[in-house]
Nucleic acid binder design. Sequence first.
DNA 1: AATGAATGAGACTTCATTCAT
DNA 2: CATGAATGAAGTCTCATTCAT
Lengths: 231, 231, 231, 231
Amino acid sequence: MSTPGSERAKTMRYHRKREHVIDVAVELFSKNGYASTGVADIGDAAGLARGALYYYIGSKEALLAEIHDRVMDPLLTEAAALASLEVGFRARLRLLSESLLWQILHRRDHVWVFLHEYQQLQGEPRTLFRAKRQRFEQRVRDALAEGQEQGLVQAEDLELATLAFLNLHNYTYQWLGGRRDLTVEGLAAFYCRIFLDGIASAPADAGDDADDLARGRALLESLRDPADVAS
Amino acid sequence: MSTPGSERAKTMRYHRKREHVIDVAVELFSKNGYASTGVADIGDAAGLARGALYYYIGSKEALLAEIHDRVMDPLLTEAAALASLEVGFRARLRLLSESLLWQILHRRDHVWVFLHEYQQLQGEPRTLFRAKRQRFEQRVRDALAEGQEQGLVQAEDLELATLAFLNLHNYTYQWLGGRRDLTVEGLAAFYCRIFLDGIASAPADAGDDADDLARGRALLESLRDPADVAS
Amino acid sequence: MSTPGSERAKTMRYHRKREHVIDVAVELFSKNGYASTGVADIGDAAGLARGALYYYIGSKEALLAEIHDRVMDPLLTEAAALASLEVGFRARLRLLSESLLWQILHRRDHVWVFLHEYQQLQGEPRTLFRAKRQRFEQRVRDALAEGQEQGLVQAEDLELATLAFLNLHNYTYQWLGGRRDLTVEGLAAFYCRIFLDGIASAPADAGDDADDLARGRALLESLRDPADVAS
Amino acid sequence: MSTPGSERAKTMRYHRKREHVIDVAVELFSKNGYASTGVADIGDAAGLARGALYYYIGSKEALLAEIHDRVMDPLLTEAAALASLEVGFRARLRLLSESLLWQILHRRDHVWVFLHEYQQLQGEPRTLFRAKRQRFEQRVRDALAEGQEQGLVQAEDLELATLAFLNLHNYTYQWLGGRRDLTVEGLAAFYCRIFLDGIASAPADAGDDADDLARGRALLESLRDPADVAS
DNA sequence: AATGAATGAGACTTCATTCAT
DNA sequence: CATGAATGAAGTCTCATTCAT
């Protein structure tokens, strides 16, 4: 009676619809925030009644966890692959940059949710997610350590250098909506030029600017509430 | 009934208590998120009943707006002062960096709320806040334009350079809690060394790395779901 | 298409599967309560999807009604048979006790549902069930009336004696789970010894204990909230 | 400005209203069942909006726990007092009976909830309640042990005797609604006469009835489905 | 200046039931 | 026979806000 593969077809339909629901949720979460988006809103946007929605998502928080995985998992897979690739330090970092920016540019909504709402995760998903994030961070740190050995990274504090690299990339999600002209390769080239040439330079001797800085700092302090400065 | 001056005294007490309430709210908002912090929580932490709280705050959203102003206003004041200061380009950018990092390090909780929950603002406070943010951004852009004229900033896209500078600084609030050893001056020196030396360098000719990059990109694409790559 | 007899075969299979579903439901209802057991739970435990389940049960409430009948109907049949049996009063009551305890011990789950969830029945099943229960109660009362005529039951209030007899038996389902060592005959002997020897005795003249009782009652009253005692 | 004791007055008002809410809930729970009674129903019956209700009750389950305590706590207090009272065995048991029946008759609704819905308790309240119940049961067992020493309780299995005593009393809540003519003292006298005279008698030698019983049992077995008898 | 009490909308989630396939 | 998908009402609970006192 039933065509072969019909069972898989059902599963396929379920799976496709489920993905659609998540897509819809991602868009709403990124636009209005996780806490401010109601399950009813998602249902309306997905064309599903409240009850049917739960047939697909389990819970609002499971939805959030899934969105995190959708970004984090490919990111880790790619970073692992890049770590094993036999390329030079600068190329490896540039490729890491491109991998990260690919997610940020192509999955803008996901990344917004991912970087903005991660603290809403509770329990096991929270733990899991934190571990994954640290694993990714470690990949970047490993790459920078390689550069350090080659003298291409001048930094006492490698941890801080890693964070600076991530700062540069991660915050992009905040303003990306207003700059749709950017490409992954172009942005990676720009960020990596700044970071690599900057981090390769000798730690600045502020000698020339010392006087200017002193005057400026005095000015700033004069503007601050004494109570604030004390703290 | 009331002694002369008592009215001003009341105002003072009122003001002090109000500040305290806001302090308490900032801490809770930064720890648990704006949406997840109830007015009751704030009241409990401030030692005030719900009714009395509203005597001081007006509304939960007004509280949020006030927190934004507490960071944004000094930032704008200082940026304006620095703009008029007669110092060199590098020093001015370094001072802007220090001004911004001072808020981030010394008002960590405020900055968290400010950078994390600003989209929860609605109506007029939202408009106002966006205008202030753009004004601050313009200060940075102006400083970079000065560097561009002097050949110290090599960037076709000055807007993008501005955003990169802000990326580097702003995202700091996300991980600052784990690095309490940092100082404003030290961090500013590090960020500005990277940014200034990096942005002053000639746009990279990726010639040497071209082959590595090609191989890496092929690897990355092979890992991606075809459906994703298409989009 | 269908071989002769296949229809009856279907009916058999249907019937057997239906019984299985009910068995599963009884177990769940008795363990978790009727209201707290979902139709989905029953389906899962029976290995049937939600849709298929309804092919067998009609509705959740019909299931509950059926479970009641499964206990009540044999009970009534047996009580009727015992009523016509020519045996002495003591033996008849003992046999009624054994009949009732047989259900309680051998169909513990059914009886739990039956004695615990009967008030969840609505409409016609409710009416029917109440009638059946009263018919059973009447059988016990009839037996006791026989004993009363023979002077073996000393009770002004025969109704109350009936209820006492039922109390003794029915509440057993509450703690039976912890006492799996008991047998129908043993428990019936114990209950009937107490009840028959107790009910055959002359109504107590509390003369000897009057003083003790008075002191005890005074103590109890002193412990009670005056507001409570009033009501 | 505020009259002395006004603070206590507020607390008093809160307390009184809270008690009222619980009273209302008890009535509904006992009439319709715990699971079938919605929080909305309680609110309606108490004349309180949904939100206000939670100001008083905390949660539906906390309400259930409170109802349990309202019965169990006085019961334990009284049982403890009676255990220390210097009275004879028969009087002590009679007083225990009266104490228990006082709750059953005067707090019929509470007792219904207490004896019928206790399994709905979860977590800590569940544990606590079970411990209290066992403590009460122990009081009865202690009293019966006293009788056993005096030869007034003929029972190999004291545990079972305890349960029989409790059966007799506890199940009363099921039919009490139809018999409002009863008094605590009258019912206790009746139950205790049956139980004490019954339990004091020599274990029955069913000699006289042996034949009748055998015939009756054969009849019963003939009525039963062979499949059932096997189990 | 402060409070406790109340509100009512809306939050997330569950559930018995139906129906096209 | 059986299923997966869908429904919509109802469930418990939270929350920002108001107001009489």
